[in-house]
Design a protein around this nucleic acid. Structure first.
Lengths: 229, 229
DNA sequence: AACACGTATATCGTATACAATCTTGGCTTA
DNA sequence: TAAGCCAAGATTGTATACGATATACGTGTT
């Protein structure tokens, strides 16, 4: 994460945003520890503020705070991974439909810009950035649908999806999905709610099916395995 | 809210739980202010702990914290009221289906106990308690469905529903809904997922249709109106 | 040599003191 | 009298100091 260069001290919200970005871009891996003093020094604020930021990220599901041990980037279990995508499957298709029925030209333009930015990031081999932008695309649809409550939930689900992807994503056949986003925008441009809903449903299943559902072992175990080589 | 009588100081979680209960039971009305010092004295803890509790309730949507002004019980707008029930309509029917397919005898017994407690509360004219129990019933279904992520979201939605009901509920024909809960349990007992899903959908629409959707004015305005009488 | 125990250190949890901000009441003035 | 302004008090925001807990390391014992 980048240090603050401004003169005014960072707010808890800004710190939370930067940490979120780092996790979404996989610069901070699940399991990574965030020591309070360390974060304090990086952002030049007191622990009070940092603790606020960490606490808010715990509520979002991004961090797990263990009493007297500290804050760690969450490591969703396989069950949680399932639950996240089941919840998304319930919320997002009908939200895509509503967005398709409401989207104006400016909205469409913004989504297209988004897709371009994704492609550009991939071209520059910044897979983390592309992943973050991909998540933002889904949030943007909820915003267009003018469903603030669902957008709020989706924010948490996208956050957790990012962790799930970090843990369970198959590296091969990595990036076949930008077409799905493009097709969605096309449906929205045509005011085709039915199609948008179906495309979103399929898109989520696509992502879900690309997860490796075998249970990952803990780091300590994989260290043991490594020593046997 | 009742003061703590225990010897050990209250935790932030306990304080949050008691405040939540008070709001759910409508002993604390939307718009009510919660001064930090006041809450400190009631629970015998320092402001650090109280601020944690208030902050967590803000994340749940129960409180709204205005910078340098304090924490208030949230007053959902009409749009937010709509959004809450739209989100519930997306999440709860399929959750009821899953619960129906998973519920065992103990689960059914618990739900029946819940309904009885609701009736008992109504008989004692404790409408607030009955309302809280009614919300817990919905959460219990998510627990039975073994959908922790959805349960978490539903907890927030039930909380906000309680605020919506406090603001927009029509007093007349107050309590025709306990039958709906009973019918749901029956469907679950019969392992009838289809029916459980449909019943839940109808139940949510019922509640929603009993809300008074005319825009309420602020307290100051209603005071003016009151002076004209 | 391996294990258990105790102490030292690092880290988090809580209380408190101080600073910043808002609110309230009284005063002035048009 | 009503409106505007200033000062005092009340309330929240932040930093820091202290206490509690967990971790790591070294020592002693088997």
């Amino acid at each position: 994460m980048s240090a603050m260069t401004e003169s005014t001290p960072a707010t808890a919200e800004q710190i939370a945003a930067q940490l979120t970005e780092a996790v979404h871009e996989h610069r901070l891996q699940p399991g990574a520890k965030l020591r309070e003093d360390e974060v304090c020094e990086i952002f030049g604020v007191s622990r009070t503020i940092v603790r606020q930021a960490l606490r808010s990220l715990e509520f979002e599901g991004l961090l797990t705070i263990e009493k007297n041990r500290g804050a760690f980037v969450s490591k969703p279990t396989l069950k949680e991974a399932h639950e996240v995508f089941q919840a998304r499957a319930l919320l997002e298709p009908s939200t895509a439909r509503a967005a398709a029925e409401r989207a104006n030209a400016a909205d469409i333009g913004l989504l297209e810009q988004h897709i371009e930015a994704e492609h550009a990031a991939l071209d520059r081999d910044e897979a983390g950035l592309a992943l973050k932008l991909s998540g933002d695309f889904h949030l943007e649809i909820a915003r267009i649908a003018d469903q603030h409550t669902i957008e709020q939930f989706l924010r948490q689900l996208v956050s957790r999806s990012s962790l799930v992807i970090a843990l369970y994503w198959r590296r091969r056949n990595a990036l076949c999905e930008s077409n799905a986003h493009h097709a969605l925008v096309e449906a929205m441009q045509n005011r085709d709610g039915d199609n948008a809903e179906e495309l979103m449903k399929g898109h989520l299943l696509d992502i879900y099916s690309q997860l490796d559902l075998r249970n990952r072992e803990e780091g300590s175990v994989s260290l043991k395995e490594a020593l046997r080589l």
